[in-house]
Nucleic acid binder design. Structure first.
Lengths: 203, 203
DNA sequence: GTCTATAGGGGGATAGAC
DNA sequence: GTCTATCCCCCTATAGAC
């Protein structure tokens, strides 16, 4: 069954507080090492329980990864893609999306980075579901860029390629950003918005 | 001891053909799964030997990863950074670097992608050495962009940020490029060159 | 230089008591 | 819902024969 963005997303609410705590702990551990370097016992200890307890809340370790990645990916898209439908110029809307993308990805970096790096550790079915959401986001951005070019606000030679390039730029920030650096994450988000406008050829 | 780019790089030549074959096999396996998902026995079997044989050629599994990442990183930089010293315009030189970066990274995708993804599985000492080379490349690009802006060919508001954004764009290609797609890698490399010139604000 | 055999530990997951 | 105990498998790495 193909999922849609309209589906109600009550996963977090319908789960026990313990289960949510386990996922919070796990996503942080997966972020700091990687999925295959973090054992069941490590996750359990960090959550203050024994290994066997995890299997009361989740079917497998992979299901934890799946929940982490699915929810962070789906929720981000559901809450942020509507920016592109706002009643302002193409440039304003794109710049705002970039700004929010960079800021949100950093604020939710444990789940978001895991969702970028560990996709290959999902089962084929789970991977397909996550990729569906990712593709919705990517295609919408590409269409938006193409539309902006069509209406003369952008001058893009290849909207699909530009869209993917922008995504890689934005997604990369979490890998190098350090809070102690020269710029605050909000400043980087702002500057990336301006950079993206150059890239799409704003007039 | 701080390594330099001037050091002679005879690693591959000084190693037995068997050892090089093991590294070729290992980098491909690390690329397809990930470092921690590929066991010693899998590497050995794929190379046509038993697990214990690997320890005649390398001290540890991590040393294999280190050799793969170090050599591919160092050799790329040594061979391609001189492009920026060519006697042409800033725009021409930058575009050519981008083109070669994208093409080379795809051609050497096993080692290159492993070198981007698996850095955290290196020992602190090995990581520091690899990061030295990566930083040489990044800083040179940032300086080059700043110089291009200084001499009026580019109009960059923040050369350091732009440099890192370009690197993320270029490094991302291997993660989504499919040879069966609409564009050949050489076309993408070409288009990325033009895209980058927009990003740095070529007049 | 490659092998067999194995050490020593940790992996994910389950059974069944409480 | 959490625990203890445990299963079976695979991990990296080493010893020592050939």
């Amino acid at each position: 069954m193909i999922p849609t963005l309209d589906v109600a997303c009550a996963d977090v609410a319908s789960r026990s507080e313990r289960a949510n705590e386990i996922l919070r702990v796990a996503s942080r551990l997966f972020f700091e090492k990687d999925y295959n370097s973090v054992g069941i016992r490590t996750i359990a200890n960090s959550a203050g329980v024994r290994g066997a307890t995890l299997y009361h809340h989740f079917r497998s370790k992979e299901e934890m990864l799946y929940r982490i990645i699915l929810e962070v990916t789906r929720d981000y898209i559901r809450d942020h893609l509507p920016i592109l439908d706002a009643p302002s110029s193409f440039a304003q809307r794109l710049k705002e999306l970039v700004r929010q993308h960079v800021e949100y990805f950093w604020a939710h970096r444990y789940g978001m980075s895991v969702g970028l790096r560990e996709l290959h550790n999902l089962t084929p079915e789970h991977l397909a579901e996550v990729q569906f959401y990712r593709l919705v986001y990517q295609r919408r951005i590409q269409e938006f860029i193409a539309a902006g070019a069509h209406f003369g606000e952008f001058s893009c030679f290849d909207p699909d390629l530009v869209g993917i390039a922008l995504l890689d730029m934005m997604n990369g920030v979490n890998d190098w950003f350090k809070p102690a650096g020269r710029l605050h994450i909000a400043e980087i988000a702002q500057l990336y918005g301006e950079l993206v406008l150059r890239t799409v050829g704003t007039r």
